[in-house]
């Protein structure tokens, strides 16, 4: 594997970070110009009705910054855990050949533990999106 920033990093001939930088710049220019043109061409007739948040004709009451339902929070936490674990798997994936069967066994154990964790969440109801009717 080469280092991310190679010696020819600033060369426009290399498909490296410099090209990515220029590409990003181009995208910024494009989006910026779109916004500018729209701001210049767009109609401007503001009114109280228009700027009222849409609620199907009902005049909104209270703040729209509501508290999130708990399941979303749980999803966020699970994602955090599994994403971090995913990072370990990915690092193993590029070097599995060097690590061989031992590495595979270790990773399988790791994945098994991960699956066990998932099963635990599952059994505990962490993945149930709504309170299910409890089976008698």
């Amino acid at each position: 594997m080469e280092p991310v920033v190679s010696a020819g990093a600033l060369s426009p001939w290399e498909p490296g970070v410099f090209a990515l930088f220029v590409y990003g710049l181009l995208i910024c220019v494009f989006v910026g110009s779109q916004l500018f043109i729209a701001g210049w061409l767009g109609e401007k007739k503001p009114s109280a009705e228009k700027s009222r948040p849409y609620e199907c004709g009902v005049i909104p009451t209270g703040s729209a910054r509501l508290r999130y339902p708990v399941p979303f929070y749980l999803v966020a936490v699970f994602f955090l855990i599994f994403d971090v674990e995913g990072a370990y798997i990915l690092t193993w994936a590029v070097s599995y050949e060097e690590l061989g069967w031992i590495g595979w066994a270790q990773m399988s154990f790791f994945i098994a533990v991960l699956l066990l964790g998932l099963a635990y969440l599952w059994v505990k109801g962490g993945l149930d999106w709504m309170p299910l009717p409890r089976k008698e």
Binding site: I37, A38, G42, E43, K44, K50, S51, R52, P53, Y54
Partner: peptide, 13 residues
């Protein structure tokens, strides 16, 4: 159309 439409920002946004 998108370029010429009014760009509204809701109250309290």
């Amino acid at each position: 159309k998108m370029l010429t439409k009014e760009d509204t920002i809701p109250d309290g946004a």
